[in-house]
């Protein structure tokens, strides 16, 4: 260990940051999702025409059937669900989308929207683990102004205290 401390003094560091911007294609189903979210405050998933499994987030391929899903296969999902897992993130890390440190602590959960057959992750507005329990009912909290961006329009899910 002391050898390491000696080495630390012998080396100097050069820090270098590079920007590498990407333009991701999100696909037609995601576009429809955001259009419906922005215009009608709707949350949509996609249903496989073959096995009828409802996927959230919506995507173009049902992996179990190897069958394509299109915007015709999109179904509305209620903004409510059930908490399946939760945690509170309590450490600093660089957010690749901003280049800065993401503010912490923040609540982060796994839940299943009613009617969906897959689970999904998002923020929850609770940072006290004692106030969260698997099986609680949660619902999406929408922003006043909807712009077609997931975390701006649905900043978090809240634990429905009235139903728990």
């Amino acid at each position: 260990m002391s050898k390491n401390r000696k080495l630390k003094k012998d080396f100097f560091e050069i820090k270098w940051k590079t920007d590498l911007p990407y333009r991701y294609s999100i696909g037609k189903l995601a576009v429809k999702f955001f259009e419906e979210l922005k215009a009608n405050k709707k949350i949509m998933g996609s249903k496989c025409p073959k096995c009828e499994k409802v996927h959230f987030p919506p995507r173009a391929v049902c992996a179990d059937c190897m069958v394509e899903m299109t915007i015709e296969d999109m179904v509305e999902l209620p903004p409510k669900g059930t908490l399946e897992g939760f945690t509170v993130i309590n450490y600093p890390f660089t957010d690749p989308s901003t280049g800065g440190i993401r503010p912490f602590p923040y609540g982060y959960a796994l839940f299943k929207l009613d009617g969906a057959d897959t689970y999904t992750m998002h923020f929850v507005n609770e940072t006290d683990v004692n106030k969260m329990k698997i099986g609680q009912r949660v619902e999406a909290v929408f922003n006043e102004e909807l712009i077609g961006d997931l975390t701006a329009d649905i900043p978090y899910f809240r634990i429905i205290k009235e139903e728990n």
């Binding site: 294609s25 999100i26 696909g27 995507r59 173009a60 391929v61 190897m66 394509e68």
Partner: peptide
């Protein structure tokens, strides 16, 4: 191919091959 995600792009050739 702005309208395709990587998943859709690859599925196109995989499905065609099948």
């Amino acid at each position: 191919k702005i309208d395709q995600t990587y998943s859709e792009l690859v599925f196109e050739v995989v499905k065609k091959l099948h």
